[in-house]
Design a protein around this nucleic acid. Structure first.
Length: 626
DNA sequence: GAGAGTCATACCGGCCCTGA
DNA sequence: TCAGGGCCGGTATGACTCTC
């Protein structure tokens, strides 16, 4: 079905004027579009605008407001009632720019979710099951009921308004960080017991599904929308006496997230995305779940720190990283693929600054970072002068103000770190970086012919490009999977990283196209309860989806942190929201992050190796000296 | 050639920062 | 305190490409 036809069909189903983005959402949800491109909303808007411009007699659509379309056949009363209904509900936002927000309204999420759930159930996917038997009836509801089902704005944008209603105006849980999963280990206030009213609302919500089984008339459909709005998930939260988790101080009166004004003040995006908080707070969880997923790495020139990542993924990740930074003497890394997911470009030999982070002293470093720093120092020496003594290394660091402690002690630390680094790289099938010669250290690069080192560098750069391209291709493939298959892939990868106790969570009122799970991430001596939202439809995730999950963690066990996975993209708003400190941690996996997660855990990927024989310069040097 | 889909871009309004 | 400027998201539209 074409965009225009689909729009007309959606409007017939809904029975009221809709913004073209809502039309798009529903058309996608109902699988009306024969072709869904990269930005179906834009295309829908473009096509509808073009159709209207022609203004032919067979054009079934008319524009009633900027971006809002209705059926030509509708009378003025129908259109007006459809528009008025929203105004009354939302308190009247500015029209043009906020048209979309105006159109968004909480609707019968559960109805649409039921369709999806039933679908997933049929396909055998590990997904949420329909909540009640009545849901089956929902699917077979009459057109009016179908309209009510289709009504939900199923995307994250619709969530925007949910969050407006929902964001509790209460202090956030102290000590929690928007991106720092380990923060979830902080004492977290237990879920507040819902007020009787809230409990009632919840019951009503479920009961409502039974009511939905009855084919409503047009008036009922309108009422159903209102009821849906009232019984919407977040309204329950509103009724809660206390914030469950992640209460946002933004919601305090006067703040930008203020509610009750009837419209939301747009939050200004900070210049330079990826705040320090975001980048430094991935803490005890895999770095790829840090939010923004790849942003932090790009912003900071290195990956966020991690502590207890699983050994397997750590090894793989580390391998990447060593390849990235282990050649400090090289001038400049080949420009990597631009755009999202691009790796940091290494410039120049200042490895200490890179690896040492914020001006760490040499003796503050340990392990790989110390080895990186040593490699950086060595790279500044003349290779023709031969190996460098440990004392020279320590003194160089001291001259540069990079040494705080005892020189003697640093020498032993350096020796240990360098030996460990060699062992690490050897175990990883890589060429050792250092060689010892009579208590002195040299870079193995120094013994390689210049062209060989250069070729190796080029090969590494090519491998990096290949890895990037493969990952993007993998991400594309993942995005093409049917929803249930995407869920399976995600679940498999999550299990591989130690996520256990996975249970499908039935969320009445949750947006369609999603699967919800609770789980427990086992880390060293600890267990983090997680709420998982997997978008089966591969759509982008917006700010309010993050807010919604943060506000509903108590539905998941309760969970202390949330993860959102999609084959699509994470909008900047979602990243910002997830990065807000002092709130329950929500981690975001976009398509590339999911691909990386799978990669790191050998899910749906094959490992390829390119064996290359290189001279064992250490042995050859020893033989030569004998 | 017409219709449809996609992309790029200009325009506009809102928000926030900064300086007077 | 307020106006100006910059940034950003949303929207509309033209241009290009592809298919029939």
């Amino acid at each position: 079905m074409t965009f225009t036809d689909a729009a007309a069909e959606v409007l017939r189903l809904i029975g009221r004027p809709l913004h073209y983005k809502e039309i798009t959402d529903i058309a996608i949800e109902k699988n009306l579009l024969s072709h869904v491109g990269k930005s179906p909303e834009v295309t829908m808007g473009a096509r509808l605008a073009a159709t209207l411009k022609k203004d032919t007699a067979d054009n079934p659509l008319v524009r009633v407001k900027p971006g809002v379309f209705a059926l030509r056949e509708w009378d003025e009363k129908t259109i007006k009632s459809g528009l008025d209904g929203k105004k009354g509900k939302r308190g009247g936002k500015p029209e043009a720019a906020k048209a979309r927000k105006d159109e968004e309204q909480p609707t019968l999420f559960e109805a649409a979710a039921d369709d999806e759930a039933a679908e997933e159930s049929d396909s055998g996917a590990l997904a949420a099951e329909p909540e009640t038997e009545a849901e089956a009836a929902d699917v077979e509801a009459e057109p009016a009921g179908e309209a009510a089902q289709a009504a939900p704005a199923l995307d994250d944008e619709a969530d925007d308004d949910e969050a407006l209603v929902a964001a509790p105006a209460a202090p956030a849980a102290a000590g929690l960080n928007g991106v720092e999963i380990p923060a979830a280990r902080e004492p977290v206030p237990p879920p507040a017991p819902s007020s009787p009213r809230a409990a009632g609302a919840y019951l009503d919500e479920e009961d409502g599904e039974l009511e939905d089984a009855e084919p409503p008339g047009p008036d009922e459909a309108m009422r159903a929308e209102a009821v849906a709005g009232a019984a919407e998930l977040f309204d329950e939260e509103d009724d809660d006496d206390q914030p469950i988790l992640g209460g946002e101080d933004r919601a305090t009166p006067g703040s930008s997230g203020e509610q009750g004004e009837g419209r939301r003040r747009r939050r200004r995006r900070r210049r330079g995305r990826g705040t320090a908080e975001a980048s430094t707070s991935s803490g005890g969880l895999p770095s790829y779940v840090a939010t923004p997923v790849f942003e932090a790495r790009r912003e900071n020139g290195r990956e966020p720190p991690r502590s207890d990542r699983t050994e397997r993924s750590d090894r793989t990740e580390r391998s990447d990283r060593t390849e990235r930074f282990d050649r400090p003497e090289r001038v400049e890394r080949v420009e990597r693929a631009e755009g999202f997911g691009a790796e940091p470009v290494y410039r120049g030999p200042q490895v200490i600054e890179l690896t040492g982070g914020e001006g760490h002293a040499l003796d503050d470093l340990a392990g790989r970072d110390l080895a990186d720093a040593v490699a950086g120092i060595l790279s500044t020496f003349d290779r023709n002068a031969g190996a460098v003594s440990l004392r020279q290394i320590a003194e160089t660091a001291q001259r540069r103000g990079r040494l705080a402690g005892d020189v003697q002690l640093v020498q032993s630390q350096v020796a240990a770190a360098v030996r460990a680094d060699n062992a690490r790289r050897t175990a990883a099938g890589q060429r050792p970086r250092f060689r010892f010669a009579g208590g002195r250290i040299a870079l193995t690069d120094w013994l390689l012919p210049g062209d060989l080192a250069r070729l190796e560098q080029e090969a590494l750069a090519a491998v990096e490009r290949y890895r990037d391209a493969a990952r993007r291709a993998f991400a594309r493939k993942i995005s093409e999977l049917p929803g249930h298959a995407f869920v399976e892939i995600c679940v498999l990868a999550l299990e591989r990283i130690g996520l256990g106790q996975l249970r499908a969570v039935r969320r009445a009122g949750a947006p369609g196209g999603e699967s919800h799970f609770s789980g427990a991430l086992r880390t060293a001596g600890d267990e983090i309860k997680l709420a998982l939202v997997i978008r089966r439809d591969g759509r982008e995730v917006g700010r309010e989806r993050v807010t919604e999950l943060r506000g509903s963690l108590h539905h998941y066990g309760p969970a202390t942190a949330g993860w959102i996975l999609t084959a699509g993209q994470m909008l900047s708003g979602a990243r910002e929201e997830a990065a807000i400190p002092g709130t329950a941690p929500i981690s975001l996996f976009d398509g590339l992050a999911v691909a990386r997660l799978c990669e790191d855990n050998d899910v749906a990927v094959l490992r390829a190796r390119l064996p290359i024989a290189i001279p064992d310069v250490d042995l050859l040097e020893a033989l030569r000296a004998s």
